[in-house]
Design a protein around this nucleic acid. Structure first.
Lengths: 139, 139
DNA sequence: TTAAAAGTGGCTAAAAGTGGCCAAAGTATC
DNA sequence: GATACTTTGGCCACTTTTAGCCACTTTTAA
């Protein structure tokens, strides 16, 4: 999934997910905390399961932080007939979601941002880093 | 694709794409932010997919800025029967498109500029750098 | 000058988004 | 332990937006 789509949280903490996401991710998918960014990461079921398997294959003690952070904040969500999902309070707080949110498709997965945070992220994205990456990728 | 073609945005944010582009790029193509320039880049489907593969092959953390910038702003577009595409608000803002736009074919890909920005770019293009490149290329 | 093709504007229909209402489940209080 | 109230989730219906299509205009080429 690619591109940016805006939505809003209603008074019950529900939000619309863009049709494109439903089309590409299917009827159910997983949402959980990101690592390093104040946003929610959206996984396809199979990708989520693969991730859990990877964690399961690690030594228990070593994997504990990631297990608690990722798996401990993950929810399987199923959009209702209107295409809405309800975002659990934990994740709403983590991603600082208030009213306006942005769903960003970044290929294999998608991200859910508070609009203000996303704007900030875009502004702070380092142009030099981008330019370097552009050189590496030759684009 | 080569050459410069002018078009305009209508009240719905749609614009005509030159027939040459449709002929060379096919029935569907990808548009997304550029790196370093305030314009929209137009990719052939196969070129876009190759780019995404390249990004997918990079370490996730390293690729994140580019992923968010490029893939997060990308849309697959299919011209309607009149040969128009609608340009999503995000890209319109990024490229500062208002009314008059210019489509520039620069070989493997094309660019969509706001007319004023394109004029500026032409004026500011550094003659010394150009001269150096001419020497390198021996043209 | 005429005809064909491309461009533009506007209209309509379908789909997507939003708000509100209702029912069910869980919790708290009496 | 039972009843009432609150909260959550699901569904219905209305509104709004989007996109596709038709028709008219303009341009270009023969």
């Amino acid at each position: 999934m690619t591109g940016e789509f805006k939505s809003t949280l209603d008074s019950k903490g529900r939000m619309n997910v863009p049709i494109k996401l439903r089309e590409e991710f299917g009827e159910r998918f997983f949402i959980s905390k990101t690592i390093g960014s104040r946003c929610i990461k959206v996984y396809k079921v199979e990708d989520w399961q693969a991730l859990v398997s990877k964690i399961d294959d690690m030594p228990l003690v070593q994997a504990q932080p990631v297990r608690r952070h990722l798996i401990g904040s993950a929810y399987e969500v199923i959009p209702d007939k209107q295409g809405r999902i309800s975002v659990p309070p934990t994740l709403r707080e983590y991603a600082k979601l208030s009213l306006d949110v942005v769903v960003v498709g970044v290929g294999k997965y998608a991200e859910i941002w508070d609009k203000a945070e996303w704007t900030l992220e875009n502004e702070q994205r380092d142009n030099e880093t981008l330019a370097e990456l552009a050189t590496v990728l030759n684009i």
